[in-house]
Each structure stands twice: as structure tokens, then as C-alpha cells.
């Protein structure tokens, strides 16, 4: 970024058009090009992103508040909401602990196979959700090696809640780690070494020194992890068995309603998840805005 001395103290060279002088800069496009490009971007984003969002909200209320509210109070709907919350409540903390452990090991030490480990952690990110669910069906399903053993212990994983939890954990596995690893690598180990030299134990160092340093990155990772955990469809669809009122999470219930032509109900439930998405986006933007330096790679996916 070019900031030449204090000559141009209030000038940000990245946004040439914000230059306070009225003349166009020699390294910017003619105005018509600029506004055409802005127009294209706005129309594209509106048609692709904004309209679907608006559609959800409009359709949700299309049959009135009564039907809207009914979607959540109706037993199967309420069960779906409860199940979604339960799954997230299990998956997110587990992935959080994993993420912190993995980031600690990777950021604070040099060991053989470190980059291999980092690549492995990224795997669930690149696997199709359907495959993510299917692997658990193959592992615990009726034709698997483990099935007789599970039956003996009366454990039902596939077509039951434990399977849904596992599949959700799989797909949201990397989120917290991906956020924390570069962040902790950037921050280095000096703070921890200082704490140790002052006599702190490992635990104390972690709680009092590391955790405050990473708290915004942690929150960011948890936000994304939670959004995905509550919204996962493909993986859960494969493993859940779609038992209405029992093993349907909110996304699956939405599918059920939609396929039964209960559009208002489907969109009502969808609007809840859309609200969650908006809240996630808002919080994400606030975090990036206020704490940009304390988040690593805020724009990576």
C-alpha cells in the first residue's frame, strides 16, 4: 500500500476514488467503466444472493403468522429444532477442544509430519457431504463388520441420533482448527515462554495467556462451525433415516415439508436457519471489522 511519507496522510491509495481531489487519478478507470462494473456486481449479487434470502422470508409468511408459528410448535417441527440444537451442542464443543489441541501442537512445536497433519485436518473440507455421511453408514451400518457388536450392546448408530452427531462432527471438523492454526502460528510462542519463565504451569499459561490471545479467533471459528453444524444437510440426510419426529434435523424437516408441498411450513423453518445465517454473517463482519489483526486469514475459506 503506497503511503508516501506524511504528504498524503489522509490518503488511502487502495481506493483511488476516495482521493479528496476531484480529478480522476491516472491509474483509475473512466467513470463509465467503474459504474458499469459496480452495476454488474450489484445486479449479480442481488439476483444470486439477496433474492433467494428475500424469497425465504416472503414465502415463510405467505400464509400468515399462524402457519408460520405452527411450523415450530407442531410436534415434528419442534422435535427437529430440538434435535438440531442437541447435535450442535455436542459437535461444536468437541470440535472446539480438538481445534485448540491441534492448533497448540502445530503452532508451538516443530515435529516430523506437521504439514501432513495439517493437510489431513483439511480433508473433511474437501469431501462431498454425501460421502461424509456414507462413510459412517459403511462403518456402522447393517452390512458392516461392527454391526453385530453394536447390536449386542443395543447401540444404534445409523438411522439414529448418534450417527447424525458423528456425521455432523465429521463435516464441521476443520472449522475451529483452520481458524486457530494460522492465528497461533502468527502469534508465536513468546508470550507462553514468558509466562513459563515467570513460573506459571502449563495449564495456567494456557488459560491466562494463550486463551485471551486467541479468543476472537476462537469465537470466529465456533461461529462458522455452529452455522455449518446446524445447517448440514447432505451428510445427515444419508445417515439419519429420515424418521419424522425422531431423526430429522431442521434441514431434513424442511425437505420433508417441501416435498409434501407444505411450502409455507418449509420456508417458515427455513427462515429460522436463514436468521441464524444472517446473525452469523453479522457477528462475523463485526469480528473482522473490530479485531481484524487478531483473526488469521479472515477471508479464507
Amino acid at each position: 500500500m503506497a503511503m508516501y511519507e506524511a504528504d498524503v496522510a489522509v490518503y488511502d491509495s487502495r481506493r483511488p476514488d476516495e482521493a479528496p481531489d476531484a480529478h480522476s487519478r491516472p491509474t483509475s478507470e473512466p467513470a463509465w467503466v467503474k459504474w458499469t462494473l459496480i452495476g454488474i456486481a450489484v445486479v449479480f449479487l442481488a439476483a444470486l444472493l439477496v433474492l433467494p434470502l428475500v424469497t425465504v422470508l416472503v414465502q415463510a409468511f405467505s400464509k400468515g403468522i399462524g402457519v408460520f408459528w405452527g411450523a415450530f410448535t407442531e410436534p415434528a417441527g419442534a422435535a427437529a429444532i430440538r434435535l438440531t440444537l442437541l447435535v450442535a451442542a455436542i459437535a461444536v464443543p468437541l470440535n472446539l477442544v480438538f481445534g485448540v489441541c491441534a492448533a497448540w501442537a502445530i503452532a508451538k512445536y516443530q515435529f516430523w509430519g506437521k504439514s501432513f497433519l495439517t493437510t489431513l485436518i483439511d480433508i473433511p473440507f474437501s469431501v462431498s457431504p454425501v460421502v461424509s455421511g456414507m462413510v459412517y453408514v459403511l462403518l456402522f451400518g447393517a452390512n458392516s463388520v461392527l454391526y453385530p457388536w453394536l447390536q449386542a450392546w443395543h447401540l444404534q448408530i445409523v438411522f439414529a441420533v448418534p450417527g447424525i452427531v458423528l456425521a455432523t462432527i465429521f463435516v464441521t471438523f476443520p472449522f475451529v482448527a483452520r481458524e486457530l492454526i494460522p492465528l497461533m502460528q502468527d502469534q508465536g510462542s513468546q508470550d507462553e515462554e514468558a509466562a513459563l519463565s515467570l513460573g506459571a504451569t502449563g495449564w495456567q499459561t494456557f488459560w491466562r495467556v494463550t486463551l485471551p490471545n486467541i479468543k476472537w479467533g476462537l469465537l470466529y471459528g465456533v461461529l462458522l462451525c455452529n452455522a455449518r453444524a446446524m445447517g448440514e444437510f447432505g451428510a445427515v440426510s444419508v445417515i439419519s433415516g429420515h424418521i419424522r419426529g425422531k431423526t430429522n434435523t431442521m434441514p431434513l424437516h424442511i425437505e420433508l415439508l417441501f416435498d409434501s408441498y407444505n411450502f409455507a411450513g418449509a420456508f417458515a423453518m427455513a427462515s429460522l436457519l436463514a436468521m441464524l445465517a444472517l446473525v452469523t454473517l453479522i457477528l462475523k463482519t463485526i469480528l473482522e471489522f473490530r479485531y481484524g489483526d487478531e483473526l488469521a486469514g479472515t477471508r479464507r475459506h
Partner: peptide, 15 residues
Amino acid sequence: VDLPFALPTAVAGIA
């Protein structure tokens, strides 16, 4: 721009 990343795929699908 991040909406597709935060919005559940099923919601996007029906919308």
C-alpha cells in the same frame, strides 16, 4: 458475499 457459506444448503435449495 459470505452468505452461501453461512446459509444451509437445503435452505438455499428450496429458495
